Simulated scan of single mutants.
Amino acid sequence: MTYPTTPVCVSGFLRRAGWNIGPSKDGRAPGRPPNGPVFNDIEAVALAAIAGLGLAQVPHYLAARAIADGRLRTVLADYAVSRGDIWLIRPPASSESPRVRVFATFLTKLIESI
């Protein structure tokens, strides 16, 4: 199987997989991918990719083991987002409990180490 090497190549890859993503046959309306699973959980996205359901952009920590043992393959590495935003919502400092403060410090150090 040939894997996409640039974002433009993704459309050809998806067409070969049976997705109609370009203009419709009459050239007017864009095509749409077939109905399929929709996820609101990044771990589910990673598991779907491991199961062969398609391409996915997931954090390295979710894909590393599957890449190492050959269940996943990295494509478009030159176009990968290096880091996303992670937010911790917490109460104002005046009402923050010591437990929340300790957890926030732990989480900050953990994220910085990745």
Rank of each mutant, 00 (worst) to 15 (best):
F103G: 05
G22I: 06
S24I: 01
G22D: 11
G12A: 14
L107K: 10
P30R: 10
P98C: 04
I111Y: 14
G70W: 03
D26R: 02
R90Y: 12
W87Y: 10
Y61I: 03
A68I: 01
S95R: 01
D78G: 08
G12N: 15
T5I: 00
I67T: 03
K25R: 15
G54C: 04
C9H: 10
V100D: 12
K109F: 08
T2K: 10
G12D: 08
V45D: 02
G36F: 04
A56W: 05
L14P: 00
A29S: 07
G54H: 05
K25A: 14
A104P: 03
S97C: 05
L47E: 06
R15E: 12
T2S: 04
G36E: 01
R73P: 00
A80E: 04
A68N: 10
D26F: 06
V45N: 01
L62G: 02
D41W: 05
L53Y: 10
D78Y: 11
F103A: 15
T108A: 10
P98M: 07
G36H: 14
R32D: 07
G84A: 14
V8R: 06
S11W: 09
L62T: 01
G12Q: 09
S24P: 01
L53A: 12
T2H: 15
L14D: 07
G54W: 08
V100R: 13
P98N: 14
R32E: 07
D85V: 14
N35M: 07
A77Y: 02
L55F: 03
G12V: 00
P34Q: 11
F106L: 14
L55I: 08
G70N: 15
R15W: 08
G31A: 12
E43S: 13
T108K: 07
S24Y: 08
F39D: 09
S82C: 11
V75F: 12
A93E: 12
C9V: 02
S82W: 09
P37R: 14
N35H: 13
A17V: 02
A104V: 05
A66L: 00
G18N: 04
L76T: 12
I86M: 11
I42P: 07
N20P: 13
S94C: 06
A46G: 07
R32Y: 15
N40V: 08
L55N: 05
A29M: 06
L62K: 09
N40A: 13
L88P: 02
N20S: 12
T74G: 04
I50A: 04
K109Q: 14
A64W: 05
